[in-house]
C-alpha cells in the first residue's frame, strides 16, 4: 500500500456485508499539485478535497447533485464533486476555486464577482466561479441565454442571480481585456 502523502488526515474505513473493503490507490493532480494516496472506494471527490486535502473552498450544499456548490473542474470540465467518486479521478487534473488565483493575484472572474456584488453569503460562489471558468474557456463572449444556461445548475439563495449575471458579463469583458 503506498504511503499516504503529507496532509492526508484519514482514510475512512468501512465494511460491506461479508468482508472488508479493499482501499484503492489513487494518483491525481489538484491545482497543479500531484498526489498519490489511498482511498476508500465510496469516498466522494468533494470529501477527498475538503477532508483529506484541506481544500475547503469547495462547498457541500445539497449533497444531492442539485445545487452546484461543489462544482470543480475535472480535466477542464465542470462536475459536481459530490457525485463523483474520488477513485474516478485517477489520473485526472482537478481544479478547485483555490486554483483560480495565481501568486495571490485574483483572476478576472474573482475580481468581477467582487466588483459586481455577485455574492452575499458566498456559499455558492466557488461553484459559480468554476462554471464561469468553463463557460469563458470555451466561449469568451457569451450572450445572455448562454450565461443563464451555463449557471442553470447552480443555486444561489441570496442574490436573486442578477448580480451574478452581471459578474459573469464583467468577467468576460475583463478576460477579453476590454
Amino acid at each position: 500500500m503506498p504511503k499516504p502523502a503529507v496532509g492526508i488526515k484519514r482514510v475512512a474505513r468501512a465494511k460491506t456485508r461479508g468482508g472488508a473493503i479493499e482501499p484503492v490507490p489513487l494518483t491525481l493532480t489538484v491545482n497543479g499539485k500531484a498526489y498519490s494516496i489511498t482511498v476508500e472506494p465510496r469516498l466522494l471527490l468533494v470529501e477527498l478535497l475538503r477532508e483529506q486535502l484541506d481544500l475547503t473552498g469547495t462547498h457541500v450544499g445539497c449533497d444531492t447533485t442539485y445545487c452546484g456548490a461543489c462544482t470543480v473542474l475535472m480535466n477542464g470540465k465542470t462536475v459536481k464533486s459530490c457525485t463523483v467518486f474520488a477513485v474516478q479521478a485517477e489520473g485526472a487534473e482537478i481544479m478547485t476555486v483555490e486554483g483560480l488565483a495565481k501568486n495571490g493575484e485574483l483572476t478576472a472572474i474573482q475580481q468581477a464577482f467582487g466588483e459586481s456584488y455577485g455574492l452575499q453569503c458566498g456559499y455558492c460562489t466557488p461553484g459559480l466561479m468554476m462554471c464561469t471558468y468553463q463557460l469563458l474557456s470555451s466561449n469568451p463572449q457569451p450572450n445572455d441565454s448562454q450565461i443563464r444556461k451555463a449557471i442553470a445548475g447552480n443555486t444561489c439563495r441570496c442574490t436573486g442571480y442578477q448580480n451574478i449575471f452581471k459578474a459573469i458579463e464583467l468577467a468576460a469583458l475583463k478576460a477579453r481585456g476590454a
Binding site: 475512512a12 465494511k15 460491506t16 473493503i21 484503492v24 476508500e40 472506494p41 465510496r42 466522494l44 449533497d63
Partner: peptide
C-alpha cells in the same frame, strides 16, 4: 452523505 461501502473494480 456517504454511499454504502462497495468494492471497486476498474475495467
Amino acid at each position: 452523505m456517504f454511499p454504502p461501502a462497495f468494492n471497486y473494480h476498474r475495467a
